[in-house]
């Protein structure tokens, strides 16, 4: 049974695909210039009753932010940036991690163990803090000496590099464990070289595991992005808007409708106008839930016992109780004598 038939996987996959492509199509028809804006709400008598930010379920389905832009529009429009960014980063993490991991698995055993122990520390140091430590100075402290493009590339690289060691060690350990299988020594005897082993045996084995790892890295990237957003490090780039010129009240604003920066830029409003924070947070929650559904379905499918060998469909037989034979006296006597029925 392929993973595509599992309802858990399908529902997760559909949610992700709808969000991503729906967002692209939506922003094709409703670009940011035509975004729904409502700064003042009027009632039936054309009397102004409310001003932005307007609460949800009153004309605007998810309310508006403080500039009067519909939150629904912002969340849908932002999905493509957040998801696209996560797809990109997770793919790069996996790509470099797999290549390095395959190389690492070919090195002698002590090297493998020592490096997997060494990189275990990446698991214990909270990734958010390390990422913040490296990205925050570039984006906020010495912004002047580094050009804008270089800042973006640098922060992307950091977000990728931060998880490469863990992916690398996971892949290397899986591979070296797999290479201990008995049939691998047969491969060696029959003349299969290193490259042959990796290509023909390891990669097919790793493929389903890599797809699980990819989804997990997607989740990790999304979480990291959300955490960095709370710390005012915006992936989409930061702009500063001065609200009251006299009071020098400057707030950081994200340049694009990216979810994590929407959370971070508006976090201070959570006690008053909570929907501004809750809308993108709900987006994150739904996406991560959908991804976790996919991971769970794939785990059930691929990591079950004997998943590497070809699986035959197992039909569960309903056990019917053995029928009690009704024996005549004659048959009974014969069985008692000869031991068989006929």
């Amino acid at each position: 049974m392929s993973v595509w038939r599992s309802p858990l996987f399908l529902s997760g996959f559909l949610i992700i695909v709808t969000l991503f492509f729906g967002s692209i199509i939506y922003s094709h028809f409703v670009p940011n210039e035509k975004q729904p804006v409502m700064q003042i709400r009027f009632d039936e008598q054309k009397q102004p009753v409310d001003s932005a930010p307007i609460a949800p379920f009153k004309e605007m389905p998810f309310g508006t932010d403080r500039f009067g832009v519909s939150m629904l529009h912002k969340v849908i429009d932002g999905a493509k940036y957040t998801l696209g960014f996560a797809f990109l980063v997770a793919f790069a993490r996996l790509f470099f991690g797999t290549i390095l991991g395959l190389i690492l698995s070919q090195l002698p055993k002590p090297v493998l163990r020592a490096s997997s122990k060494l990189f275990e520390s990446f698991y214990y140091a909270p990734a958010t803090i390390v990422a913040y430590l490296l990205i925050y100075p570039v984006l906020q402290i010495f912004t002047w000496s580094v050009p804008k493009e270089q800042q973006t590339i640098f922060s992307l690289l950091i977000l990728i590099l931060i998880a490469v060691p863990t992916v690398m060690v996971t892949v290397a350990n899986e591979t070296s464990k797999f290479l201990e299988n008995e049939f691998i020594s047969s491969v060696k005897v029959l003349g299969g070289g290193r490259i042959h082993k990796l290509r023909k045996h390891v990669l097919p084995y790793l493929k389903p595991r890599l797809s699980i790892l990819y989804s997990q890295q997607l989740i990790a990237t999304l979480l990291l992005a959300a955490h960095l957003g709370i710390l005012q490090v915006f992936i989409g780039g930061t702009d500063f808007i001065t609200l009251d010129p006299l009071e020098n009240n400057t707030v950081p604003v994200a340049m694009i409708n990216e979810w994590s920066s929407m959370i971070g830029a508006n976090y201070y409003q959570i006690r008053g106008d909570r929907w501004i924070v809750f809308a993108p947070l709900a987006g994150f929650a739904i996406t991560i839930l959908a991804l976790n559904f996919m991971v769970e379905a794939m785990k059930r499918q691929y990591l079950a016992k004997g998943a590497y060998t070809k699986r035959t469909r197992r039909v569960r037989k309903t056990k019917t109780p053995v029928q009690v034979k009704k024996l005549s006296q004659e048959q009974f006597d014969r069985i008692m004598k000869t031991g068989t029925d006929n």
Binding site: R113, A114, K117, L118, F119, E120, S121, F122, Y124, L133
Partner: peptide
């Protein structure tokens, strides 16, 4: 002992990343 100390050494490598 070497394996035991490895993760602790790793923390130093992370902390000095800037």
């Amino acid at each position: 002992i070497v394996y035991f100390l490895m993760p602790i050494v790793g923390v130093f490598f992370i902390g000095a990343l800037p």
